[in-house]
Structures are given as C-alpha cells and as structure tokens.
Design a protein around this nucleic acid. Structure first.
Length: 509
DNA sequence: AAAAAAC
C-alpha cells in the first residue's frame, strides 16, 4: 500500500505529515497527489471526510516550496464556499507548511479588511478565500490574480447550490490561462461539468467511492411525533428533544442538533440552555467571531451541544461527535446524508436521531429513497409525555395580537422569545419548568425595554428592519484614514492572528 | 418553508 513517503512530496511536508501522525494516504490523496505534483489539472470527485483537503494542500506546499511571493500577487488561491471551511483549510496549511517559509492569508467576510490588506501587501504564497470577499478585495484594487500558479476550487457543488458559480467563473478569468487547477466536487451536476470543461485542461479525474450513505457505523433512528396542537409543534418538539437527549445519557458525549431555520436554531439553543444543557447556536447570522468561538468551544469540549443550521452540515471538520439530532427533517434529502455524516466517522460508532412530524412525510420519503432503506422507527423515550404547558399556547388571551407599541418602535415582537432561566433546579421536571415561562411573561416587556438599548449589537437580526442599531456607535467607526486601528478588536478572530509566525518576518526581507 | 455569502 502506498505510504506518504512514497509520494514525491517535499521532505518538509512529509515531516509535518508524520508529526501530525499520518502514514497512509486516503484514496483521494493517493490518487490526486501524484498528478498534482506533475503539474496536471485534477478533477477530484469526493465527499467530505475523505481527506480531500490534504490532497490539495500537500502538493501545493510542495510545488510552492521554491520561489517567493510578490506584493499583492498571491501565487496560489483556494476558494471555499463558507467562511468556516476556508478557515479550516487555512489551519491545514498551518499544520503542513510549518517547516516551510510559505505565507498565507485568509480572506473571508465578517472581519475587517485591514489585517487582510496588510498580509496581501506584504505578499502571500497562499490565499484562502470565500468568493465574495476575494472579489471585494480585487475590486478595491488591492489584489492581482495574474500571478496565480495554482488555483483550487473546493466543494464546487456546494458553490453551485449557493449561487457562487458566476463568481467562480469570473475569478477563473482573472487568473492566468497557464495556471494549474485542482477542482473538487462531491457530485458532477451538469453545471459543474460545464465549468470543468471550460476551465480545466485535460484533468486527471479521481473519483473516490461515495461514502456509504448509511454508513455501518451510524445507527439511524426516526421518532415519529404528532403534536397535539399544530401551533405548538416547535415547543412540543423541544420537549421531546430534551427527553431524547436525556435518555441517551452518558452515551451522548457531544452532539450536533440541526434545525432548518436560523431562528429555530436560536430558539432551540436558548431553550436547551434554559434547561441546563450546555448548548450554543451556530448559523450564518451570527457574527464571525462568535461562529469561530463556538466552533472552537465545541471542538475542545467546552460546548457539548452545537445547535446548527446547515452551515455546519457539510465540510466542517468536527471530530468525534457521538450523536446527531435532526430537530427538523431536512427538506433536501442530500442534507440528511451530510448531517448524519457528522457522526460515525473514522470507524467510531455514531447515533443519528431524527424527529419527524406528519407534515415531514414528503421529505422523509425522499430521504428513504436516497438512502435506499427505511429509517428504523423508534418510540419516544420511555415515560415521555408532553407536559400540559407544552400543549397550551405560551399566553392565553392576547397571544396573537401584536404587543403594544411594537409597530411604533419598529422592533420585532419578542414575546415568543425564550425567557431567561429561572433557577436550573427545575430542569428535570418538565411540568414545573415550563411554569416560569408563563410567570415570567409579564416581565418580558420591561426586560426588552432595557435590552433594546444595552444589547451590544446583532441580536436584532430581522433583515427587513431598516433601522440600524449600530448607528448608536457612530463614533467608533474610525473617523479618518489614519493607520491606528480603532474599535476593531472585537472583530478580529483569534485564528486570523495565527499564521506562519516565525517566518512571516523574514518573508519580506 | 431555507441556508449560505460582500458591504
């Protein structure tokens, strides 16, 4: 069997690979690396979890090993669909390039331009970016792509889903015709096929077997649940969810809980926290600093439950998740496969529990068709019964009427927001714990008045809301162009300050 | 009925 040492990688890369504890390349790595090292274009058809990232980072580092970057002209470019994926690729470079002098910059949205500009100006070997922010830099004239020798497109099918293909085409056209292209996609949709025909030259095609969709290591379960009141579906599902998690007990070391909507992610996370579960939300409306913090916390175990939108369904490298819970049935069957694929990795056993209501039937059918087997039905945990409170609307009388003054202030009606915890000790008895919500309801208004002014930012993420709360802070938008960075500290995630530290100084010497 | 990504 091929070993990494059999591949003609730079000894410095091999050293880093060995130090990271790897000996044997995965099929996509063994297939792609030799072609990439020969300078050929590569078309890799592979899912996440197949070792795709290293299959392009290792040869890139090797190929770039000689030569030096010039100001504003990166020598290579990696495009990723989401910020987290880009950050993850960047971390990979840190690991495998640690014995080299290569420099890199991570260009993603949600963080300030300043630091990114500085790195680009200095000259970087590797640019890792999401398409939007990359083009933004380009349009501001800060970046030239004419020096790109190697371009990587990661998760192209997802780029397609997200409408990035025009951006990708444009970026292709900004790079030299002579560049080497490494292109990865999980599927070959017609549009992807067209792109590869247009921009790849005689690529070596490496296809690795689709991960068994229902991997042997994932135990799938379906809990069919009929809410007693349609308007209380979400609330009742949350109660069921708590019962399911509790029933798993110690076996559930950590878990990702998927919801279909960002608002639902927030609600479920808050609700779980309220009941004493160590949970944090992650979705695209949270600011980048928070997204990274949450992900780091989840990786290092300080967060046990990650409540997520599909931003976390694919690609993110989150090792050793014991459970995946689908609070909502995903409306795209493929997402189901991606979601449950977050568990049962690397030979470990995993459990994926999906909660379905009758209205999910259509999606369920599609999922079972895709995975080519029925999902095993299981009963709700023994002894589970909906508390009375969960069957009643949150408030009785004026429940559907807008709150007084809500329209005038333009604020969203927040009555349905979960209320802060009132004593964790209630957490074990559903009937009891739901009471505080009702009791607390009258206080909500008062609390909201305070919150509206003191909450730092963000929370009010109604998109249609024309008022920009952050106007309050007009003074910390830097007044002039002086080079002091003011008020940016909050927006600088840790990972951006990590780079090839010892070498960065010498690079422009 | 959605999520993601640029300000």
């Amino acid at each position: 069997m091929t070993k990494f040492s059999d591949l003609k990688l730079d000894p410095k890369v091999l050293k880093a690979v060995a130090e990271a504890g790897y000996e044997t390349p995965t099929p996509i790595q063994a297939g792609a690396i030799p072609h990439a090292l020969e300078g050929k274009d590569v078309l890799g058809i592979a899912q996440t979890g197949t070792g795709k990232t290293a299959s392009f980072t290792l040869p890139m580092i090797t190929l770039l090993g000689r030569g030096r970057a010039r100001a504003r002209m990166p020598r290579s470019l990696v495009l990723c669909p989401t910020r987290e994926l880009a950050a993850q690729v960047a971390e990979n470079f840190d690991i495998y390039a640690k014995h080299t002098k290569l420099t890199k910059a991570l260009l993603i949205g949600g963080v300030s331009f300043g630091e990114q500009d500085k790195l680009i100006d200095r000259g970087v070997d590797v640019l890792i970016a999401t398409p939007g922010r990359l083009l933004d830099h380009f349009e501001r004239g800060k970046l030239l792509l004419t020096g790109v020798q190697i371009m990587v497109v990661d998760e192209a099918d997802r780029m397609l889903d997200m409408g990035f293909i025009p951006d990708i085409e444009r970026i292709f056209q900004l790079t030299p015709f002579t560049r080497q292209t490494l292109f990865f996609s999980a599927t070959m949709a017609p549009e992807i096929e067209r792109i590869t025909n247009t921009f790849l030259h005689a690529p070596a095609k490496i296809e690795v077997a689709r991960q068994a969709t229902t991997s042997e290591t994932i135990e799938q379960r379906l809990i069919e649940f009929t809410p007693t009141r349609k308007d209380q579906t979400a609330k009742q599902k949350r109660e069921l969810l708590r019962a399911v998690i509790t029933a798993e007990g110690e076996a559930c070391t950590n878990a990702i809980l998927f919801c279909n909507r960002k608002t639902e992610v927030d609600i479920v996370a808050k609700s779980l926290k309220k009941y004493g579960f160590n949970a944090s939300p992650i979705h695209g409306d949270l600011d980048q600093r928070q997204r990274m913090q949450t992900l780091d916390g989840f990786r290092d175990g300080s967060i046990r439950f990650l409540v997520a939108s599909d931003v976390a369904a694919r690609g993110l490298d989150i090792p050793a998740v014991s459970h995946v819970f689908n609070f909502d049935v995903p409306s795209h069957a493929e997402d189901y496969v991606h979601r449950i694929g977050r568990t049962g990795r690397a030979g470990r056993k995993g459990v994926a529990v999906t909660i379905a209501t009758p209205s999910d039937q259509k999606y369920l059918d599609a999922i079972e068709k895709l995975v080519e087997r029925p999902l095993p039905r299981v009963a709700p945990p023994e002894g589970f019964a909906l508390s009375e409170a969960a069957q009643k609307p949150a408030r009785k009388d004026d429940d559907r009427k807008p709150r007084r003054g809500a329209e005038k202030t333009g604020r969203k009606d927040r009555r349905d927001r979960p209320v802060k915890p009132h004593g964790e000790e209630a957490a074990m008895t559903p009937v009891e714990v739901t009471k505080p919500v009702e009791q607390a309801a009258p206080q909500v208004e008062a609390r909201d008045e305070v919150k509206a002014d003191t909450r730092p930012e963000k929370d009010n993420r109604g998109r249609g809301d024309r008022k920009d709360n952050r106007r309050d802070h007009k003074d910390d938008r830097r007044g002039g162009r002086d080079d002091r960075v003011v008020g940016m500290g909050d927006h600088m995630p840790d990972f951006l300050t990590r780079s090839f530290k010892p070498k960065a100084e010498k690079a422009d010497g």
